[in-house]
């Protein structure tokens, strides 16, 4: 399994309602909640692109852009 690398972790602050699900369940503690209760990426270098934050976001406010697209396809 090739290691995927994060290119960009976008948070749509307009849509984020601050439930904290993304930050609470991130195994690598990539995300935190800021003083306005919006999710912010703080340790993007640790992201393993598991995409669980993106998939669990009830607000559709997270978008993960991975760098190694070809490898990602190999993984399926």
């Amino acid at each position: 399994m090739g290691k995927r690398k994060l290119k960009e972790l976008q948070i749509n602050r307009e849509w984020c309602k601050g439930c904290g699900i993304c930050a609470a369940f991130c195994a690598k503690k990539v995300l935190e909640m800021d003083e306005l209760d919006k999710a912010v990426p703080v340790r993007t270098e640790d992201c393993v692109v598991c995409r669980l934050c993106e998939m669990r976001c009830p607000d559709l406010a997270i978008e993960i852009v991975a760098e190694e697209q070809i490898e990602e396809e190999d993984i399926g």
């Binding site: 904290g20 995409r51 993106e54 976001c57 009830p58 607000d59 559709l60 406010a61 978008e63 993960i64």
Partner: peptide
Amino acid sequence: MAVKDYIRERFFPHMWCAGCGHGIVLNGL
């Protein structure tokens, strides 16, 4: 993932409460 291709973006943010599981179902669907 092109989630936005499947939604009517003008209605977002949606009307559900913060942390509502229905948003996760929408996401998964």
